[in-house]
Simulated assay, not measured.
Amino acid sequence: MTTAPVALEIAVTSPAGAVVARDGGADRVELCVGLELGGLTPSQALVEATHETGIPAHALVRCRPGGFVHTPDEIALMEREVRAVLRSGAAGVVVGALRADRTLDRDALRRFVDAARSVSATAEVTLHRAVDHAIDPVTAAATVADLGFTRVLTSGGAPTAAAGAVTIARMVEAAGPVQVMAGAGVTPHDVPALVRTGVAAVHLSAKRPAADSAHDGVPMGGADDGSAHFVTDAEVVAAARRALDA
């Protein structure tokens, strides 16, 4: 039996980033805004424009920054966002929710999956790094197959995927038919070790500060420190691709 090649996913925030990822050999992109906040739901227009680049785009659906315990209103909103981004051309969605006891919110997750499949029977659904905030990421990974998830994005509960590699390998064993994708602080140097855990994909933002995008003066919000925004770095994407192909 042949082993499927490990996929490369790049987190991007713009159609330009999607083009860089595509031309650098990425298999798909995760599309979001507010990457510095951990990622938030992209707009309809952003999804449409990214879809036009030709690379499969999986849209993050996360209605606010912060933790993953959501109110009923937030869950209802994200359910609508799931349908909206798929109707706008996304090939999949990236979702997650926890209960206050740090177990997966299975009711919310089931609603997200059902919403996705109501738009497209072939939509891929990824459980995002809320799993890394769960009380037991390995157990969580073992319980999502019956909810209809395609994959789980994880750092193994650690600050970076490289640090969580041992747990990621356990999650691969536990997840059954659900793919496991390693992500968080990944650099091209980390790729070979992550591949050895048995993951189906590696995920990285491959970002660098945009030239001349920093600003001084009047802050635009509490989190605005005047820093530059980020763009996708073609050299990092290409290096990750080479590391996978080596």
Score class of each variant (00 low, 15 high):
residue 10 I to L: 02
residue 12 V to H: 01
residue 13 T to F: 00
residue 15 P to K: 01
residue 18 A to P: 02
residue 18 A to G: 05
residue 20 V to E: 03
residue 20 V to C: 03
residue 21 A to T: 09
residue 23 D to Q: 15
residue 24 G to K: 10
residue 25 G to Q: 08
residue 25 G to C: 11
residue 27 D to P: 01
residue 28 R to Q: 03
residue 30 E to Q: 11
residue 30 E to V: 07
residue 33 V to Q: 02
residue 35 L to T: 04
residue 36 E to S: 12
residue 36 E to G: 10
residue 37 L to W: 14
residue 41 T to P: 11
residue 41 T to W: 10
residue 43 S to R: 04
residue 43 S to F: 07
residue 43 S to W: 07
residue 45 A to C: 08
residue 46 L to F: 02
residue 47 V to I: 08
residue 47 V to F: 08
residue 48 E to H: 11
residue 50 T to L: 07
residue 51 H to E: 14
residue 51 H to Q: 15
residue 51 H to T: 15
residue 53 T to C: 04
residue 53 T to Y: 01
residue 54 G to F: 10
residue 55 I to A: 00
residue 55 I to R: 00
residue 55 I to K: 00
residue 56 P to D: 12
residue 56 P to F: 05
residue 56 P to W: 09
residue 60 L to R: 02
residue 61 V to I: 15
residue 62 R to D: 06
residue 64 R to D: 12
residue 65 P to W: 04
residue 65 P to T: 09
residue 67 G to P: 03
residue 68 F to A: 02
residue 73 D to L: 01
residue 73 D to K: 00
residue 73 D to Q: 11
residue 74 E to H: 02
residue 74 E to R: 00
residue 76 A to H: 10
residue 77 L to D: 07
residue 77 L to H: 11
residue 78 M to F: 11
residue 78 M to I: 09
residue 80 R to L: 14
residue 82 V to E: 01
residue 84 A to G: 00
residue 86 L to S: 10
residue 88 S to H: 14
residue 92 G to F: 09
residue 93 V to M: 13
residue 96 G to F: 10
residue 97 A to T: 04
residue 97 A to N: 03
residue 98 L to I: 13
residue 99 R to W: 03
residue 100 A to C: 02
residue 101 D to H: 11
residue 102 R to A: 13
residue 103 T to A: 06
residue 103 T to Q: 13
residue 104 L to I: 13
residue 104 L to W: 13
residue 105 D to A: 01
residue 105 D to Q: 03
residue 107 D to Q: 12
residue 109 L to R: 05
residue 110 R to P: 00
residue 110 R to H: 14
residue 111 R to F: 05
residue 112 F to L: 07
residue 114 D to L: 05
residue 115 A to G: 08
residue 116 A to Q: 12
residue 116 A to F: 13
residue 116 A to Y: 11
residue 117 R to Y: 10
residue 117 R to N: 02
residue 117 R to S: 06
residue 118 S to P: 08
residue 120 S to H: 14
residue 123 A to S: 12
residue 123 A to H: 07
residue 124 E to S: 14
residue 124 E to N: 10
residue 126 T to W: 13
residue 128 H to M: 05
residue 130 A to R: 06
residue 130 A to P: 12
residue 131 V to P: 00
residue 132 D to R: 04
residue 133 H to T: 03
residue 134 A to F: 08
residue 134 A to G: 14
residue 135 I to Q: 10
residue 135 I to G: 02
residue 136 D to G: 10
residue 137 P to V: 02
residue 137 P to C: 03
residue 137 P to G: 06
residue 138 V to C: 11
residue 143 T to N: 11
residue 144 V to C: 06
residue 144 V to M: 06
residue 145 A to D: 13
residue 145 A to M: 07
residue 147 L to Q: 08
residue 147 L to H: 06
residue 149 F to S: 03
residue 149 F to V: 07
residue 149 F to D: 05
residue 150 T to F: 15
residue 151 R to Q: 12
residue 151 R to C: 11
residue 151 R to V: 02
residue 152 V to I: 15
residue 152 V to Q: 03
residue 153 L to I: 11
residue 153 L to D: 09
residue 153 L to Q: 09
